[in-house]
Design a binder for these strands. Structure first.
Lengths: 145, 145
DNA sequence: GTGATTGCAAACCTTTTGCACGCCA
DNA sequence: TGGCGTGCAAAAGGTTTGCAATCAC
């Protein structure tokens, strides 16, 4: 979790685009700048609604396609959801999820022990593990009340 | 994992329906009998295609609504998916998932250590944990080849 | 200049809703 | 018999696709 200035972030973004042969368009920059400040798991439409304020002419398709592109280059994750619209996770650092089965919300949490979970030999033989996540299912405080 | 005869299973199902005030209809019995034999994570449509063979007049809606009903009474789980159609998990025992980011398939696996993972105090204070699952993200053997 | 990207529209897929009929309890 | 459950049809919601115009390199 290092602090970076907005310019650093933008430079990083430009580099990443070039690495993957992607053009740096104002639409992509705007979307990028919006999502990196989010700590929720927005749908494409939610991002579209926010980006539209700064860039009124942008189309939903551009936002949606850009998010797919960002997912392809590892800039965002596509989240596991339980029905409904696809959600994107701007936080690609190791983290875990609390999933409230009542309201459906997914809350991020961090836990070093879970990050360092051992993967059994027999699974590593059959499957190349790239990341791991613990999902806790239950009832959040708001819903319990 | 105890073995049970088909009649045992059906009796169990009838009991469960009565417990929840649900009527035992031939459609529900047929769907139930089909899904308990599955070890995959079918979509509603996949189940519809299979059930239709045995019960040609059944409608997709009935299958879909029945699956929701089954999910409500804990007979199946609604799976977390990464876009696309909702998937149902007929296996409600504790288990974990391998998620192949290339083909999108999700493979079940069982692991006692993961089942017994400790949940940190500070989370239990904020969140009533009902279940836990480890999701390993990576590349499956078929896709690696 | 040229190929990637955008914006628009239509198509597609899945899920949800409303309603009349039928069947289980 | 009463009310839940079913089947059909339409609507809604989200994603994908095709194409012409535009823009970054």
């Amino acid at each position: 979790m290092k602090q970076e200035s907005a310019e650093d972030k933008t430079r990083e973004f430009v580099d990443l685009c070039h690495e993957h042969g992607l053009k740096v368009t104002p639409q992509r920059v705007t979307i990028y700048r919006e999502i990196i400040t989010m700590d929720t798991h927005p749908t494409a439409d939610a991002i579209y609604q926010i980006v539209k304020k700064e860039y009124p002419n942008i189309s939903f398709d551009t936002v949606n396609r850009t998010l797919q592109t960002f997912a392809d280059i590892g800039l965002v994750d596509v989240m596991e959801v339980f029905g409904g619209a696809k959600r994107f996770d701007p936080n690609v650092d190791d983290h875990h999820h609390l999933h409230c089965i009542r309201c459906g919300h997914v809350i991020d949490f961090f836990n070093r022990t879970y990050d360092e979970l051992d993967v059994p030999e027999e699974i590593q033989e059959e499957f190349t593990v790239l990341g791991k996540r613990v999902v806790l299912k239950g009832i959040c405080k708001a819903c319990a009340a």
